[in-house]
Amino acid sequence: MIPDLGKYAVEVASAYSITFLLIVIISFLYWRRGLIIRRRLMAAEARKDA
């Protein structure tokens, strides 16, 4: 049930897709950096305790 966007379909679709893309990119970057840092920290803690 895609709504009829009329003559502005391209505009609306591109606005939504660019926004989604940017949100996904920033979320992914935050998540990935968090994962990398957490792994490195766990390794460092393990080395310290050893």
Binding site: I26, Y30, G34, I37, A44, E45, R47
Partner: peptide, 22 residues
């Protein structure tokens, strides 16, 4: 995202301290 980012930065700081000690 703010919480995720801040948690990462706190961990990164701790990591830097530990690596400095090493």
């Amino acid at each position: 995202l703010l919480l995720v980012g801040t948690r990462t930065e706190i961990r990164a700081q701790r990591l830097q301290v530990l690596e400095g000690l090493e």
